[in-house]
Write a protein that binds this DNA or RNA. Sequence first.
DNA 1: GTTGATAATCTCAACGTTGAGATAAAAACA
DNA 2: TGTTTTTATCTCAACGTTGAGATTATCAAC
Lengths: 166, 166
Amino acid sequence: MGDAVDLLLDQWRRERPDVDPWPMGVVGRVSRLAKLLNRELKEFFASYGLEHWEFDVLATLRRSGPPYELAAGTLVKAAMVTSGAITNRIDRMVAKGLVDRLPDEGDRRSVRVRLTDRGLALVDEMLAPHVANEERLLAALDPRDRDHLADALRTLLASLGDTTLG
Amino acid sequence: MGDAVDLLLDQWRRERPDVDPWPMGVVGRVSRLAKLLNRELKEFFASYGLEHWEFDVLATLRRSGPPYELAAGTLVKAAMVTSGAITNRIDRMVAKGLVDRLPDEGDRRSVRVRLTDRGLALVDEMLAPHVANEERLLAALDPRDRDHLADALRTLLASLGDTTLG
DNA sequence: GTTGATAATCTCAACGTTGAGATAAAAACA
DNA sequence: TGTTTTTATCTCAACGTTGAGATTATCAAC
C-alpha cells in the first residue's frame, strides 16, 4: 500500500536518477501528515466552537497545573509562534472569557495569563474526547509501531533542539 | 534524552491521571517536527531567493517530467492548498519568470502551468543541495530507523486517504 | 440540442501570522 | 549611581491563505 509520497519518490527517481531522494520520504511525509492531522483536529475543535490555537492555549495552561497561569512568553515558546501572535490570541481569548490577563507582581514587564473558571471547565470537558479523536486518527498503527514512531520522532526533535516547553 | 513532548506528556499524566495521553506523543511530535523542519527548509530556500511554496511548485512541475507542465488543479492537490492560493502563486511565479500560464487546448476551463527554461534550470540546480540539506536534518537517525519511520508514516498517510498526488 | 449538474479557475474580503520596531522594565556592570 | 544590555510585551503594516461566491466550460441524460 503506497501513499502520495511513494509516487513522488518514483517520479524523482525517474527524472533525476543521479539523486537519491530518500530524505523526501521522511520530510515530505512529516509535512503532509501534519497537514492532514491538522485538518481533522480543526473539525473536532470547531465542534466545540474553538479554533485549534485556542485549544492549544487552554491545554498549555491546564497542564501546567494550578493556578493554571503562565507568562505570555511561556505561551510563545510552547506554541512556537511569535510574540505578536500571542498578544493577538490572548486578546481574543480574554474577550471570549476563556482567560484573564494579569499583571506579574514580581516583574512589571511580564504578563500572566490565567485560565478562567469557564476556560478550565471547557478544557477539562474536552480532554478525553480530544485524546479519543487523536487515537482514532492513529488507529492504523499497532501499539509496537506507534511506540517506535514516537521514539524516532523524539530522536529527531531532540537533535533539532526541541527540548523545552519554555 | 527527552524532547518537549515528553515534558508535555508528564504534565498531563500528573494533572489528568484519568486520561492516557499517548496519542499526543505521536500527533504532537508530528506537528512540532513539521514546524521545525519548515523553519530549516525556509532558510535554505531563501538562500536561493525563493519562498518554500515557490520551490514546491517548481519541484512538482519538474518531477512530472517533460514538458514540465501540469494543470492548475493538479498543483492544488499536490500542494494541499485552496484554488485561490494556487491562483496567487502562479501569478507571482509568472511575474518572476519561473513558469508560464498556458491555455489548455482540450479543455478551455483549464489552465496549464509550465516551467520556463529559467525555472527548470533553477530547480535542477537546487535539487541535490536541497536533498543534502534534508539529509542533514535527519542525520540523527540511522538507516534502519529512518526506514521504519518512513514506513509508519506511510501507513498513517495511507489510512488517512493520502494516496494520490492529483 | 437543451437542460441540469459538475468541474476548473479566478475574485475578493476576512483572518491570523510574521517581522521589524517601539516601549518599558530589569539585570549587568563599571 | 549611572549606563548599557537584555528581556518581555505590544504595535502595526505587509503578506499569504481561506472560504464563499462568480464565471465559464464540459459532461450526462433526455
